[in-house]
Design a binder for these strands. Structure first.
Lengths: 130, 130
DNA sequence: AGCGTAGATATAGAGGAGTATACCGGCGTG
DNA sequence: CACGCCGGTATACTCCTCTATATCTACGCT
């Protein structure tokens, strides 16, 4: 049995180790489309619920409510009830949420620039399989 | 009816417009935990199926297969069958996938550094609701 | 009183993604 | 031969997300 060949394989695995146990639960919470889009909207300045719904054209009432609740639970956005007339709830970004600005902006920009390329790749793949 | 107040609201919406229609379908494909982790592993160098499964400790056989299929469909990774003995399938990153390296690395690093903060926020939130 | 707005909640159903498990096929070794 | 390894598929079940829709409270306007 060639011990050396197997050992070389193991060394490669160790050197490029990935902290799945540490990062996976975090990515599970933040790596989804609505988190990226909501934080991108909230970064420049706070917004109220229905304002968010208008800007995130196509999002459902419940989907937005759920996404905001998760973001609030994770300490990325802050919920504040305004004493305005018709009540009013303002969602603003927290310092922790702001630290996600750069990564999320990069992701948003990537989606903007490489979106067409991605779509073409999908079409090519689907046609090659058909 | 105060027209100016409504107009001011509309102006705010226009100035910070978000291209949901363009970015949402893209983020739907790439913004998920396994895409980030798989591409992070594949960035330095290609890997075979079971190598990936060992590094992504905890991922299911099927989950990895599905994720790789989606990444391949989107043109982010390349699948190549090796004529080695026991067969062998190597997954490598494409130029398009490489353009995601910076954003995904930023996300991975964020998960590493801010993971504990996130966890604490969750605990605090859950306790305040209990 | 009746209507509109703002935020929230509830429900039912569709669909995607994940887990667990078993199986196929080719090839190697004991 | 019987077994394990490698890549992959198939199945069934669960869980989460999204959609669509309806209902609720509180306030203001006409």
């Amino acid at each position: 049995m060639p011990d050396d060949a197997d050992k070389a394989d193991d060394i490669d695995i160790d050197t490029s180790l990935i902290n799945v146990h540490q990062t996976r639960p975090v990515l599970e919470q933040i790596a989804n489309k609505w988190s990226v889009l909501i934080l991108t909207v909230l970064c420049p300045k706070p917004a109220r619920f229905n304002q968010l719904m208008r800007r995130l054209d196509g999002i459902t009432h419940k989907a937005l409510a759920d996404a905001l609740k998760r973001l609030e639970r994770n300490g990325l956005v802050q919920r504040q009830v305004l004493p305005t007339t018709p009540i009013g709830v303002e969602y603003s970004i927290t310092p922790l949420g702001l630290s996600l600005k750069t990564p999320f902006e990069a992701l948003y920009d990537w989606a903007l620039t490489h979106g067409p390329t991605l779509k073409n790749a999908q079409i090519a793949y689907d046609e090659s399989k058909a």
